[in-house]
Design a protein around this nucleic acid. Structure first.
Length: 387
RNA sequence: GGGUAGGUACCGAAGUGGCCAAACGGGGUGGACUGUAAAUCCACUGGCUUACGCCUUCAAUGGUUCGAAUCCAUUCCUGCCCA
């Protein structure tokens, strides 16, 4: 496989392939820009798609320039958004940035990687410079974007600072002299602004390369932290495996295509194909042995419904022994999840909670101390009471 | 600054003095069925030391009333039109 075809594999759109070829012919390492906004501490499989592409470039000898948008994160990228993002404080952003980097290097290699914070240049900008920068872009250009158009049509507010975002992202490209900028397809507009600004600054224009957007676990909306439909890169092997198993067959086709860049093996049972997908993704972010173990555990717990021999967190109940209390405490103690007592009661009444494989019929029932066994809480969570 | 329409639960959206913890739809959760899939059906979806009971909630504050999401006043926020 020639380097070019490797580099453009899995890509949604390039502007343009010819330009990329010209740049590659320069014979020097190219500066490949990827901007990330640390708006949340987790990065997920969706980010992974673009990061993997960046890794492809690294492997081909090019330099990854990861721009941590500590400054832009405070604005919030309006791309694909129907509401204004909440603005974060600088401290939150820095904390997120830290865990962000750790996760990004699960995919990227430290060699040929450079990390820059865009606060470096934006913080130093005077208001005069900001105005000057703004004068290069027209409101019309900004407003033709679909997401803005949409909000305009629906009568939803668009705040003035939001239209700054593409300009700032574009300016990042100028500051790092990017040769190529990567992003999701929803980033195309922002990346193109970068090209405009570079041209005006007399720089060679960056090549815009966009990657397909990965749908979230629900199969409809894009994977994102705020929608809760994501698989984080630092997710535990079991959770990662399990979350992937919960996707629809339809979505699995997409995941195969985008994440593994291959088609589903012909003739295989969808469930087997999914297990294989889950195992491979888990192996990618952990390792083979761990992934194989996750598969085994999954089979035990869900295929053979053998909770007794499955690995479950140990739960040490407090003094309150009625099932409502047990459920609430188990969630808090073993899953860091807070559940109200009403919620717990609903789960019990709905038949979700099982003690030793039997539905708990009476929420007021009391479990005598010393009893041991498995307490199933909901579809995916169960705990073991050991003593 | 003027005019005008609005602000209801996770979202959309009813409700315009008691029958309102608040219709309906979506989403979410749980159950049945399964392959932790889809489709379908059912239930739940503010909280409570355990409830045909109580508490908090309909932008905020204050008021009218036996009683307010609903009426009045003030404030804050948003859309649209005009300047």
């Amino acid at each position: 496989m020639s380097p070019l075809s490797t580099l453009i594999r899995g890509c949604a759109k390039i502007h343009s392939e010819a330009e990329l070829q010209t740049k590659l012919a320069l014979g020097r390492p190219l500066r490949i820009k990827l901007g990330v906004d640390p708006t949340a501490p987790d990065i997920h499989l969706g980010h992974g798609v673009v990061l993997s592409k960046l890794r492809d470039f690294q492997d081909a000898g090019h330099e990854a320039i990861l721009i941590i948008g500590d400054f832009t994160a405070m604005i919030g990228d309006p791309s694909g958004r129907s509401v204004t993002r909440p603005q974060l404080t600088h401290d939150q952003v820095l904390a997120n940035a830290k865990s962000y980097q750790e996760q990004a290097f699960k995919i990227l290699t430290r060699e040929r990687a450079k990390i820059v914070f865009n606060g470096e240049w934006f913080e130093a900008m005077s208001f005069e410079e900001v105005i000057k920068l703004n004068s290069r872009v027209t409101l019309q250009q900004m407003l033709v974007r679909e997401d803005f158009r949409d909000r305009l049509d629906k009568g939803q507010p668009i705040r003035a600072h939001e239209i700054q975002y593409p300009i700032m992202q574009g300016w990042d490209s100028v500051m790092v002299k990017a040769d190529v900028e990567l992003g999701g397809t929803d980033q195309l507009f922002n990346i193109m602004v970068g090209r405009d600004l570079q041209r005006e600054e007399g720089q060679p224009q960056q090549v815009a390369m966009t990657m397909p957007i990965l749908e979230g676990l629900d199969g409809h909306q894009k994977m994102s932290k705020s929608l809760g439909n994501y698989v984080a890169l630092n997710e535990s092997p079991g959770d990662m495996f399990g979350k992937i198993m919960s996707i629809s067959d339809e979505l699995m086709v997409r995941y195969y295509d985008i994440l593994l860049r291959e088609a589903i093996p012909a003739g295989s049972h969808p469930m087997d194909a999914k297990k294989s997908l889950a195992r491979r993704i888990t192996a990618r972010f952990h390792d083979e042995a761990v992934a194989a173990h996750a598969l085994e555990e999954f089979n035990k717990r869900f295929s053979s419904r053998d909770l007794d021999s499955a690995e479950l967190p140990d739960f040490a109940p407090g003094s309150a022994r009625d099932f409502v209390s047990l459920v609430v405490e188990a969630y808090a103690q073993c899953f860091q999840a807070s559940r109200s007592r009403s919620d717990a009661r609903r789960l019990i009444e709905g038949g979700s909670v099982q003690w030793r494989g039997e539905k708990v019929a009476d929420a007021k029932a009391v479990l005598p101390p010393g009893e041991t066994g498995v307490l199933k809480l909901d579809k995916t969570r169960a705990v073991r009471i050991a003593a």
